[in-house]
Amino acid sequence: MTRPFIAARGMNVFYGDKQALFDIDLDIEANKVTALIGPSGCGKSTFLRTINRMNDLIANCRFDGSLQIGGQQVYDTAVDVVALRAQVGMVFQKPNPFPKSIFDNVAYGLKIHGLASSKSELQDRVEWSLKSAGLWDEIANRLDQPGNSLSGGQQQRLCIARTIAVQPKVILMDEPCSALDPIATAVIEDLIDSLREDYSIVIVTHSMHQAARISQRTAFFHLGRLIEAGDTTQMFTTPREEQTQNYITGRTG
């Protein structure tokens, strides 16, 4: 087994008195797509949001245990959360472009993190990001138009371009295709597959078949616990746990 890039050990997360995650041990490998699956309220999105400390924004949310990215403790008090979120980008369920032009949506992160030293470098990196997100050919001649003038699928690819512009190590995706039609979904899925060459991707999805199609690793959560994690092929052919089998085959129990 390759060395995990993200390693959770004995991880517990609480919202006030309510415990959302129980003693999670999970490895996320580099340059792979890891799908987090499980019924609503199982803790998969909570787990996702602990990786870039999005849960810090929720009052009363408490974390204990260990979470390391590339050997660094994410919950160390010395960690600069803004820098962390540049390393760990996030794409949300609903495309959420800024109310700015297509160009400025992508340039925004580069500017605030000071990642482009000149105008031409900024332009190059915006172009590279849009190309990497598979959007360039569709919008190259209208970069000054508002981001929200694009179709849903294009907006989601714009959000992905915005995320990868700052060259993160990890991309977190929270149901990135749930608001998209099947064609736009297929385009995003294809993009995710090509992005994993350069990034480690963790994706929350409610679609079993999407998890099976796009991920190499799958982790199944239920009632705040990690029931089983393994290679996606194994999880969808011969899951070890009956609870996993019941969930992926759509059975009660």
Binding site: H209, A212, T237
Partner: peptide
């Protein structure tokens, strides 16, 4: 139905 695992 696109079955998986045992169902498949």
């Amino acid at each position: 139905r696109q079955p998986v695992a045992l169902d498949l």
